[in-house]
């Protein structure tokens, strides 16, 4: 149900490098899971509203009052690559 090309497309969206074997396995395993999941396509859900939240709360707003930020040292502490007071990354698109 999920062919090789679809697996590669989804892996690209998810930024996951897959080996040749993983592509094959993913295709097989995800198809099996999706087959099971297909059972919900039989249900008549036309007039049913979707649920994103099981709790009934609205707003939960925060007052616009500042709190102290982290120091730069702490903010950068876990970064794999740091340069010039910031997080270093390969330039996008290069």
């Amino acid at each position: 149900m999920l062919d090789r090309d679809q697996v590669l497309h989804v892996a690209r969206l998810a930024r996951l490098e897959l080996t040749h074997d993983e592509v094959e396995r993913m295709s097989r395993e995800l198809s099996a899971v999706l087959d099971h999941i297909e059972t919900i396509s039989e249900l008549d859900l036309e007039s049913v509203a979707p649920t994103s939240h099981v709790i009934e709360i609205a707003n939960a707003l925060r007052a616009d009052e500042p709190r102290p930020s982290l120091s730069r040292e702490v903010a950068l502490a876990g970064a794999p690559a740091v340069a010039e007071e910031g997080f270093e990354v390969p330039t996008p698109g290069s």
Partner: peptide, 11 residues
Amino acid sequence: RIHGAGSSIVD
């Protein structure tokens, strides 16, 4: 650090 590639800094 990254050989031969452009580098950017996130703030």
